[in-house]
Design a protein around this nucleic acid. Structure first.
Lengths: 229, 229
DNA sequence: CGAGCGATTGAAAAGACTCAACCACCGTGG
DNA sequence: CCACGGTGGTTGAGTCTTTTCAATCGCTCG
């Protein structure tokens, strides 16, 4: 069996075990009670935070999807991560004493609970497992980003698309991948037109099926091969 | 005055204040005594650690330069970071319970002290400031890497070269930048030939001066403009 | 129905890479 | 002391991927 990059860029890997950041936060009783009220519903395309502003807390995604991105000088977004249910977003900036470098926006209706910065930091410093989880998550993120840098520098657009499709599959799980062509292009790091042409190639080669804007992976093994890993 | 990206990719910013990871480690008396013996001299091109192996500790660079990189399927290296005196290398993997994703190799004769993983972790968990520094450093690294991803995806090679030259200047400080053309290309994320041609352009435009393999920045402000930030 | 946005296609241009050859420098060994 | 070989640096030319720009299409919404 191929060793697919399921734990890369997104952090699905952690969601399965109880020690993930999300699970530790979510299973905290006091916090949960507090958060019965703190859980909010977000419509599509609502921002959680914006590049340059200062962090006020962390966001735990109960359901829905969020894109985390940075906007270039030309206005083009580079998506760094797509987060889904069980992911925690926006905790990096809490420790760096800097404003956010990235923005986060919902991609679909989402249910998200918010933990205030004071509460979060207090928890982190009072629960060793939580601290451990934060350190692990941060480290993992940093490592994955190094891989991403290499991919951007050395891989072709086609290879990156294959890779991104696999990552997205692990985030969308049973659902079909459902992203605008532009967002998909901004994740792969290419022009929208190039992305569309490559998607068509993939379809012609029976690697994927396309249903409107939705994408279904047909031949995962071959897509993996195409990703060049 | 332009706001140059001095604190990006490398971590020079921290070296000036006493709370940097390096300073906290270096000023720890017990550790320092222990490390009188643990400080080693490395020749040029000696590896500190290699992608895929398991971490045994962290490396504090007293003097010299180290490249941190990942090797692609084709054998081409992508340099993620160049570390110099006052930098700490190899601590990310300690917290992620993974093998190293990156390799590190000296670029010149270096003097480096090594802290064993047990000692390091014990210190981190007994000294709040040190923990704080680790969290800050990890966060900063992750944020910088997000920027790097965007640069790779959206900027031209020329812009990236300008940017990398500024970063390198902050690492080489008073010295001239002294890297092989290949390493420079692998940092910028381009082919060696392309890099050489662009360097020539920069020279013709009086942005830099070239002395053998060494590079001197002449017009920093204009280089900054060229970087597209 | 018309406006507007996202998706798609085509054609041309540009940026960057590859390949191949050549040069320059340097240390080695005869 | 000098020829030799090797490595890193440089140049040229051709190719290819990817981008850009322009135009069209299809659909939804007011």
């Amino acid at each position: 069996m191929l060793n697919r990059p399921q734990s890369t860029i997104n952090n699905e890997g952690n969601n399965l075990n109880g020690n993930s950041l999300f699970n530790l936060l979510h299973s905290d009783d006091a916090l949960r009670i507090k958060n019965e009220k703190a859980t909010s519903f977000y419509k599509k395309n609502q921002p959680l935070f914006i590049e340059g502003s200062y962090p006020r807390g962390v966001f735990c995604i109960i359901s829905g999807k969020v894109k985390v991105f940075s906007t270039g000088e030309t206005g083009k977004e580079q998506i760094i991560r797509i987060a889904g249910a069980g992911d925690v977003v926006g905790f990096r900036a809490l420790f760096s004493e800097e404003p956010y470098r990235l923005s986060a926006t919902t991609l679909e209706e989402s249910s998200i609970f918010f933990i205030k910065i004071e509460d979060f930091l207090e928890l982190v410093h009072s629960q060793p497992e939580l601290l451990q989880a934060v350190l692990r998550e941060l480290s993992k993120e940093s490592g994955e980003r190094a891989d991403f840098i290499k991919a951007m520098a050395q891989k072709t657009v086609r290879e990156r698309l294959a890779f991104v499709l696999l990552v997205l599959e692990s985030i969308y799980k049973d659902d079909l991948i459902n992203l605008s062509r532009e967002d998909l292009a901004n994740f792969v790091g290419t022009a929208t037109e190039t992305l569309i042409r490559l998607l068509k190639d993939f379809k012609d080669e029976n690697l994927i099926e396309v249903q409107g804007r939705k994408i279904k992976l047909i031949d995962v093994d071959r897509i993996y091969q195409e990703s060049g890993y």
